[in-house]
Design a protein around this nucleic acid. Sequence first.
DNA 1: GTCTATATCTTGATAGAC
DNA 2: GTCTATCAAGATATAGAC
Lengths: 199, 199
Amino acid sequence: MSDDRGTSTQGTRQRILNAGTELFRRTGYTGTGMKQIATAAGAPFGSIYHFFPGGKAQLGEEVIRTSGAVYLDLITALMTPYEDRVAATADAFTAAAGTLAELDFADPCPVATVALEVASTDEALRRASWEVFDSWTGRLAAYYADGGIPGPAARETASSVIALLEGAFMLGRSARSTAPVLAAGKAAAAIVRAALDGR
Amino acid sequence: MSDDRGTSTQGTRQRILNAGTELFRRTGYTGTGMKQIATAAGAPFGSIYHFFPGGKAQLGEEVIRTSGAVYLDLITALMTPYEDRVAATADAFTAAAGTLAELDFADPCPVATVALEVASTDEALRRASWEVFDSWTGRLAAYYADGGIPGPAARETASSVIALLEGAFMLGRSARSTAPVLAAGKAAAAIVRAALDGR
DNA sequence: GTCTATATCTTGATAGAC
DNA sequence: GTCTATCAAGATATAGAC
């Protein structure tokens, strides 16, 4: 309990970060207001600028980077139990479809919408989102390489599997259906299988 | 020349629609202002509401639907010359990578960013974007079915190929690189090949 | 550190002269 | 049909009392 050290500031900062993550994935970066975030976090408006002096840009970048780190761990947790790379990939998509439905078709990926919005307009946020995508690709590529896919092909396979998942989220949200994600799971399995066969 | 019938209104309306399409794909729906669109179109601000009395919502929906129709024709034009479904798919991704670079990494798909932004917030726009994605999927599925992929699998394959392309655009824009789209081309070929083999 | 009030700017939209 | 002026509401951000 000595974590708080007499101040109770850490909780507020974290709540603002969580609210930003939640809202960005539902209404996007430009579509979400700072007041909206403060209200959702149960924090006074001024606190946002106390903890994030860089304003919306800083908050956006921290949301992307922290979410990126969380999901990087998730990839490891999801994949590690499996020896069979094809089955691991297919089952991850099935789980993702479930998450999509649980979120009532809000974006399961907290980076995707923001990444598209800022790619042509905000260089700092664009870099942050790419570094996140790149870290995921690297982690997944290592897992595939470990399973027998040669180095360069492992990276291309990982990149394509992540792209397929992001695109399937896009179609699934748009359709309010998990069908595109489930279909993508079969396709992802085919991609990994082909790479293992050296095709 | 009797198309104009004495009025010269059609040109202005079309220019507004074009400017909206161009800006939405670069700065998104919430990130683009009506004044910005008027300026880019070289039209007085009031003209937007003259031609689009429904305001931004109407303009957004028309942008999505007209772009959707244009790209639906594009799918046919791209695929028709090929007998080989695998080669057709792979070459389409190579062409898409070129387009991405030509656009200086603006979104080659005028629907994607808007679709993610509005999926959880604007029901009319969500439906419009889904109807576009669905029309593309149907057209591509028919092409695959014609090439020997059984009905239901053809649809799943088409859906996954489109998802993969959209996701690859996302990664490519974020990275400012065509590499993810080129990698996705190989993966897309593997998806179609697997479906043709009945796997 | 918390919280409020305010400054400044931009948004989508409307009214009305021409 | 064109174009301008204006509105009310929202945005981001800051200043300063407590």
